[in-house]
Design a protein around this nucleic acid. Structure first.
Lengths: 134, 134
DNA sequence: CAGGATCCTGTATGATACTG
DNA sequence: CAGTATCATACAGGATCCTG
């Protein structure tokens, strides 16, 4: 990140062209591989339901490390709540905070767009492929 | 996300996380550094207005190479239209396709969320920092 | 069970130089 | 003007082993 070394000379409102702009930073977050999937899974679960291993099961393909890193990032951002039951062995429950729940709304819009239009994007890609290879 | 499809295009490698998931692929796209910014700039411009150099000016910090790569990706996906005027020197105009315009809607929702809630995320981060360093 | 520590790799990004 | 080609690099992501 941090494309430029100096601050934007104009405006400096939360503008997309400012390296510090909120949208840039939000996209950096949800653009990481597992973040949006975690948000979705947590949004669809009840707060007392999902522990670490269960989350890993529901997020097919995620490694232990990346699940940990993802959840730490979300927790740091105040989007996810981490609740530890001090038992042996320990149980750690993850859930969305109210803030995290509000993030799921625009993400859901994005998911919906993806499901509705990805086939069209695939067609466009195939057209481009034909042009290139043919 | 959409764990339904279990088809493997290559016939093997069953442990790959669903490569067909539309949301995953969409996020891979808009998660790249300059894509969403390009979409926003193009969404706010008129089709006959924006050429390569102008686009680079409006997207502060983008390199020639990455702007080219970004636009090629968007064009391949059918989200951006590339129109060449065969003059000397050439003029190349970029604009969103109708499909690209529809993508700007959920992206705008994301931008709005970012502007409304990024300050709260910053506060959450500072709280975590205090806990860690203190 | 729920992670932390380490090592390694692919790839997105960037700087620079060149071209039709 | 609108790109390509080449080289270099930082970092996200993953595999594996270790621990309270």
């Amino acid at each position: 990140m941090t494309p430029s070394t100096s601050r934007s000379p104009n405006g400096s409102r939360g503008d997309l062209f400012d390296p510090q702009c909120p949208t840039r930073r939000l996209l950096d977050r949800i653009g990481t591989k597992w973040t949006s999937m975690a948000v979705k899974v947590l949004a669809e679960a009840s707060p007392d339901e999902v522990r670490f291993a269960e989350l890993q099961r529901r997020m097919a393909g995620v490694s232990q490390k990346m699940l940990s890193v993802t959840l730490q990032g979300l927790t740091r951002d105040g989007l996810v709540d981490r609740r530890v039951e001090a038992t042996v062995p320990p149980r750690v429950y993850y859930s969305l905070t109210p803030l995290g729940l509000t993030l799921d709304e625009p993400l859901a819009a994005l998911r919906e767009w993806a499901e509705q239009h990805m086939a069209e994007i695939d067609r466009a890609n195939r057209r481009s492929d034909k042009r290139t290879s043919g």
